[in-house]
Simulated scan of single mutants.
Amino acid sequence: MATIEILGVPHAYELTAPTSCPYTLVFIHGWLNSRGYWQPVISRLSDDLQCLSYDLRGFGESQSLPETDFSRGQTSSDLTPSSSSTLNSSFDSLYTPAAYAQDLAVLLQQLNIKNAWLIGHSLGGTIALWAAAQMPECIQGVICINAGGGIYLKEAFEQFRSAGQRFLQVRPRWLSQIPLIDLLFTRASVARPLERYWARQRVIDFVVADPEASLGTLLDSTTEEEINRLPQLVSQLKQPVYFLAGANDKVMEPKYVRHLASFHRLFQYCGDNVIEIPDCGHLAMLEQPDAVANHIRSIVNVQESVVNSH
Score class of each variant (00 low, 15 high):
125 G>S: 03
126 T>E: 00
126 T>G: 02
127 I>V: 15
129 L>S: 01
134 Q>L: 06
134 Q>S: 08
134 Q>E: 09
134 Q>F: 00
135 M>N: 09
138 C>F: 06
138 C>D: 06
139 I>W: 05
140 Q>N: 12
143 I>N: 02
143 I>W: 01
145 I>W: 08
145 I>F: 03
146 N>G: 10
148 G>L: 04
148 G>H: 03
148 G>K: 04
150 G>Y: 00
150 G>K: 00
151 I>F: 02
151 I>T: 05
152 Y>K: 03
152 Y>R: 01
153 L>N: 12
155 E>N: 09
155 E>H: 11
155 E>M: 07
156 A>F: 05
158 E>N: 14
158 E>W: 05
158 E>M: 09
161 R>E: 11
162 S>K: 15
163 A>V: 11
163 A>C: 08
163 A>L: 14
163 A>H: 12
166 R>C: 10
167 F>D: 09
169 Q>T: 14
170 V>I: 13
170 V>W: 13
170 V>L: 13
171 R>M: 13
173 R>T: 15
173 R>I: 13
174 W>P: 07
175 L>V: 07
176 S>T: 11
177 Q>E: 12
177 Q>D: 14
179 P>G: 10
180 L>W: 09
180 L>M: 12
181 I>F: 07
181 I>K: 06
183 L>D: 15
184 L>G: 13
184 L>M: 15
185 F>E: 08
186 T>D: 10
189 S>F: 15
190 V>P: 02
192 R>A: 09
193 P>M: 03
194 L>R: 05
197 Y>V: 15
201 Q>S: 09
202 R>G: 13
203 V>P: 10
207 V>E: 05
208 V>W: 07
209 A>F: 06
210 D>R: 09
211 P>R: 14
213 A>K: 10
214 S>D: 07
215 L>V: 11
216 G>S: 07
216 G>K: 03
217 T>W: 02
217 T>R: 05
218 L>Q: 06
218 L>W: 04
219 L>Q: 08
220 D>C: 07
222 T>N: 15
223 T>Y: 09
223 T>L: 10
224 E>R: 11
224 E>I: 02
224 E>D: 07
225 E>R: 08
226 E>C: 04
227 I>M: 02
227 I>C: 01
228 N>S: 06
229 R>C: 09
231 P>F: 02
231 P>R: 01
233 L>C: 01
233 L>H: 00
235 S>D: 03
236 Q>E: 11
237 L>E: 00
237 L>V: 02
238 K>W: 06
239 Q>K: 06
241 V>S: 01
242 Y>E: 13
242 Y>P: 04
244 L>P: 03
244 L>E: 01
245 A>G: 08
247 A>E: 06
247 A>C: 02
248 N>K: 12
248 N>S: 09
249 D>H: 03
250 K>N: 10
